[in-house]
Nucleic acid binder design. Structure first.
Lengths: 110, 110
DNA sequence: CGATCATTTCAACTATTATAGAAATATCGA
DNA sequence: TCGATATTTCTATAATAGTTGAAATGATCG
């Protein structure tokens, strides 16, 4: 995960509706949630949800798949791990901290 | 750290120059770096640096103190810890993961 | 196939963000 | 105090982001 991907991921999460949507998806687990359900839960217009969720998807933070007429979105836990790794791996000049250990100890789901 | 503070922190980091500045400060350690030094390292105008660093400071990610004519900025590791904690603490419905353990195992510097 | 449902794309507008240069503020050294 | 240095604030401008409603796309069901 390079700097520009990290900026995109951080920017994707740096908005009320998108952070809320992402957290709903994280809680929803691997099954994910339909776009319409998300829009309803967040109380925003379907087109707004589409606009925001596209940014989360573009940043690689969520995946999408079709199920009948609905499109289900789900959090990508691996991307979250990579983001967290990047934010820690370069700290303290790289010497003192042990980011690899840290990530390894993180449960697979997040 | 509430949702709006997290959005502010993520937004502060979600920009090339600011992410680069923040990482320089993280590497610089507690002594920090002068505003002018940062502007020079990032190759941006002093006024631009001032604009960006103010957002990092407003988000609570960096601290500032005066040293002679210079103003030294330093990364606030506690804020970084809080941000990381928020991003993990609500995952998996709160049941499966062990974020408290995770944070505790993180070295104090990051 | 035609009607319906779910989602995305488009268009138009408003608000926020990023940029650079000039002016203002604050500190230090002579 | 005066001049030099460091940083911030102000001003103006260009670019990006967020919102809504309408139209278009894609998939299902009768």
């Amino acid at each position: 995960m390079n700097s520009s991907a990290v900026v995109r991921a951080l920017g994707a999460l740096a908005q009320d509706h998108r952070l809320a949507a992402y957290r709903l998806l994280v809680q929803a687990g691997p099954d994910g949630m339909a776009a319409g359900t998300l829009a309803e839960a967040l109380e925003i217009a379907p087109s707004s949800l589409s606009f925001h969720i596209a940014q989360l998807a573009n940043a690689g933070l969520v995946t999408q798949r079709r199920n009948g007429r609905s499109i289900l979105y789900a959090a990508d836990y691996a991307a979250m791990n990579a983001l967290m790794g990047f934010l820690t791996e370069n700290c303290c000049g790289g010497g003192v901290c042990a980011p690899a250990e840290l990530v390894r100890q993180t449960p697979e789901c997040c």
